[in-house]
């Protein structure tokens, strides 16, 4: 359920929604963090639901001591009105038995809010690639028929690689088994995509093959890839520091080391 943090509910008419899928290495969530902190997006509301595990913290994008003390919740919506852009940041895992319910909630919210299109940033286990997927770029995309109708030319121009369907039973030659869409470690990505196809929702999935570890470089790769399409920043890849790392990314590998060690 969307709950506005302002007195008047925000309008998302014709906005583009970007959201992460909680997936391997949290790449989508990190990429969304970069967008919110770089574009100084404004929080407009929360998604309050029992499908997410509760967590709370102070402002993850604090820039000075004045804006540090501000409570943030597991799922929040931010906007940049001049870019007609909204993002839904998800900071907590989905309760395992409630992933279907969460997908339905997201799809119905996107439909009722009047977004012109939605982009899901996601990731997928690198070790589960098949032979054809091992070659070339680790980035893939998926697009629903209704979004393809709207922006077929844009996708042609970008020359992106579509996520391959893989054989259902690798190594077995069985003509009757149709290749299937397989996104291991992608969380709700596949479900959200198939739901959107069925509901005729204009939605794209941008994903990256990766492994768990320090996934900060992966987040930059994915957000730059998205930027090639949406043009949120000009030429960010030439100046890698244009994306601003939020304060909450500090101490990703734990606390300081006891000085007595040395």
């Amino acid at each position: 359920m969307f709950i506005s943090s302002e007195n008047s509910p925000p309008s998302f008419k014709d906005f583009t929604l970007v959201m992460p899928a909680v997936a391997v290495g949290n790449v989508g969530q990190l990429a969304v963090d970069l967008m919110v902190s770089t574009l100084s997006m404004k929080r407009v509301g929360h998604i309050h639901t029992d499908c997410l595990i509760p967590m709370a913290g102070n402002n993850p994008y604090a820039t000075c001591s004045e804006d540090m003390e501000e409570l943030h919740t597991p799922a929040e919506v931010y906007t940049a009105a001049d870019l007609k852009l909204a993002v839904l940041q998800i900071r907590a895992p989905i309760v395992q038995t409630k992933s279907k319910k969460f997908r339905e909630l997201v799809v119905s919210w996107i439909k009722s809010s009047g977004f012109s299109r939605a982009v899901v940033l996601s990731s997928c286990h690198a070790y589960q690639r098949d032979d054809q997927q091992l070659k070339g770029t680790p980035l893939r995309y998926l697009v629903t028929p209704s979004l393809l109708k709207l922006s077929a030319d844009a996708f042609k121009e970008l020359e992106w690689r579509e996520m391959e369907r893989v054989a259902a039973f690798p190594g077995l030659v069985d003509a009757s088994a149709e290749p299937r869409l397989y996104i291991p470690g992608g969380g709700i990505t596949k479900g959200l995509y198939t739901d959107s196809c069925a509901e005729d929702l204009p939605l794209a999935v941008l994903l990256l093959f990766c492994s768990e570890g320090d996934n900060i470089p992966d987040a930059f790769t994915l957000v730059n890839h998205l930027n090639d399409w949406l043009h949120l920043l000009d030429n960010p890849s030439k100046e890698p520091n244009k994306w601003k790392i939020p304060t909450s990314w500090s101490l990703l590998f734990g606390s300081g080391i006891p000085p007595a060690l040395f």
Binding site: H48, P54, A56, T73, L252
Partner: peptide, 15 residues
């Protein structure tokens, strides 16, 4: 301080 967070029942109540 960030990046510390609160989880469990206190977080649910705060939310």
């Amino acid at each position: 301080e960030q990046p510390n967070i609160v989880t469990g029942l206190p977080a649910a109540v705060l939310n």
